[in-house]
Simulated assay, not measured.
Amino acid sequence: MYHPYFRGKQFELITIRETAVLMAGADFVPIIEPVKEALGGLERTLKAICDAGGRAIVIVNPYHGDHQEDGIGITNLLQTDYIGNDAISAGILLRADMTLAAAIDAYEAHKDHNPTFVHAGFTWQKGLADYLGVDLAASRNVFIEEHANTLYRKHYDGSTRILVRDGFKRRKNSEYGKIPFEEFSELHLTYADMNMAGFGDFLIVGDSYSETGGPAYAVAIHLTFIDPEKDDVMFVYHFVSTTNDTPTDPAGKFAQALKKLIDKLDSGTSKLLETEAIQEFRDLHAKGHFPGLGYVKKLSMMHHIETLANYLS
């Protein structure tokens, strides 16, 4: 059903581990694109998923990060620990620079790893569908909506199809201060109408990738909510620090953003689900503690997963 797309940085992997039981119970299937050379965190994450009885898709040819030139380490990990384990699928990322021959080679090399195609700019869609032939119906195809329009997706009719939409609009943190909240997505309501077996998104991070976050002139807390008064469409709040003119004092800026969040929660009009992540935000406010920006992002991602799990249960 729901397929959250993660880039495998530290706090993304921690988010998956800490929500593994919840995601397994909700039949959520995370897509993980490993971006760090060391694979220990990925190994622990996949173990947590399998221990919880869940499933995951692991990109074996990442476009971003340390494995973009050679994903052999990821393939070896799957070959060593997950051969024949249908819970872990090898994700084959089909980008614009990938030839049909390379896509076929990757598919044949990972046939024993329960492969999933992730379409993200590929231009040989008809050729690949023709190559799969009678195997097309048994294939799984994840489409990044921006790169795979309706006509593109039509070539894979009859297969298991998942549509991933980037609902998060990327801006400088300070600019979110002018936009208290905005629409995130209605895909959780409409994916079946497009003959999709499931849907996904890039959580509150978005599809853009950077190795480091850079200095925080402003601190923003992004939290999603489903609005029953607007046909259950999902929106996202942006709680932004008041101070945004220098890259100093991230702890003070977090406190400013957090106070705005708590004030909204206490108003009784937020429509935010009181998730475990929200409770932790409340605890941080009560203690006056700043856990670091990566941890804050982790809580926002956890809240997003908890919100969708609650809605779809």
Rank of each mutant, 00 (worst) to 15 (best):
Q279I: 00
D266T: 07
F225P: 01
L223E: 01
I262Q: 11
I226H: 02
D232H: 13
K271C: 10
A218Y: 09
T212H: 13
Q279K: 04
A251F: 11
Y237E: 08
T242D: 15
L272A: 08
P247L: 12
D249S: 09
G252D: 09
S241T: 05
I221W: 01
Q256P: 08
F225K: 01
I278Y: 02
D207T: 01
T246D: 14
Y217H: 12
P228A: 14
S208P: 03
D227G: 05
D227W: 07
T248S: 09
E229S: 14
K253L: 13
T243N: 15
D263H: 04
D231G: 05
I226R: 01
T243D: 15
A218T: 04
S241W: 15
S267A: 08
T212E: 15
L265G: 04
E276H: 12
L258Q: 04
L272Y: 10
F239I: 00
T246E: 15
H238T: 01
E229N: 10
I278M: 01
P247N: 05
I278T: 02
I226K: 01
K271I: 10
E274P: 02
K253C: 04
I226D: 05
V236S: 00
A251R: 06
D249A: 14
D207L: 01
S210M: 05
D266A: 12
S210E: 13
I262L: 15
L272I: 14
D231I: 03
S210G: 07
E274R: 03
T246A: 10
S270Q: 06
A216W: 10
D249H: 12
